[in-house]
Design a protein around this nucleic acid. Sequence first.
DNA 1: TCAATAATAGTAATCATTCTTGTTTCTGTT
DNA 2: AACAGAAACAAGAATGATTACTATTATTGA
Lengths: 134, 134
Amino acid sequence: MEKKQNYSRKREAILKAIQGTTCHPTAEWVYQKLKPEYPDLSLGTVYRNIAQFKNDGTIISVGTVNGQERYDGNIQPHTHFVCSCCGAVIDIPGNFISLDANVEIAERYHLRIDSSEVLFHGICSNCLQRQKPL
Amino acid sequence: MEKKQNYSRKREAILKAIQGTTCHPTAEWVYQKLKPEYPDLSLGTVYRNIAQFKNDGTIISVGTVNGQERYDGNIQPHTHFVCSCCGAVIDIPGNFISLDANVEIAERYHLRIDSSEVLFHGICSNCLQRQKPL
DNA sequence: TCAATAATAGTAATCATTCTTGTTTCTGTT
DNA sequence: AACAGAAACAAGAATGATTACTATTATTGA
């Protein structure tokens, strides 16, 4: 019952672009990145394929920063830091949530937990440097 | 140097509406909630005051669910569960992140951490019930 | 009461994302 | 290789949440 999926060079390029960076890009970033090599690439294509990757679990969403959704090609459990100054999303190795906690919470609240996410907010080292003179 | 702030009945009502529910409402929800009592309320006013509350730290944002930002009047550290089926955001008591972790990460990566957030994704008990027949 | 200024309604503008339509690309089969 | 059906696409229109603008109204301190 699953839809057949044809090969597409652009789809592959979009995935590679997301997996090949740690900047947790937006759809627009991917579009701009690939535009030189694929001049007839359409932003809609980027969105459409990203939606598919998300659905397949090939990539994950890191959430919305300044109104734009950010994606991550690294699907290993890890943690993110979001700079409230420049909007950068930075990887922090480590999970910080025990598997036990997941199970316990799921049971206590009668929920099914599919994933957990830890997010830190603050100012990144770059922005701290820049602010020093103030 | 701080701007003077005049009293506004609508602003108070908006804050009370957000603080008086645990549903982590959207701006639209607040607007619909208050519309009967304030027939000339404007959606822009809701957004403008929410932005102010967020800035003051009176409320927090829980992130974006299905394209709409969700707010929380409870600023005590606690945890959220987001139902990927119905979009409900549910409070889970407890923080799950140690203060030590914050300090350690901040030092190791030369960051300033202002807040941390734990988010669970899955299916809530209501949606699980509804799906049972399948 | 009165002037200064903050807050608002209503509406227009913005911007990320999704949808639509007609065309092009894949793929399996002759 | 040529063909047919399905999948993917570009380009642009449509949508929907949020923000900005402008003329009016409310609040405040004197």
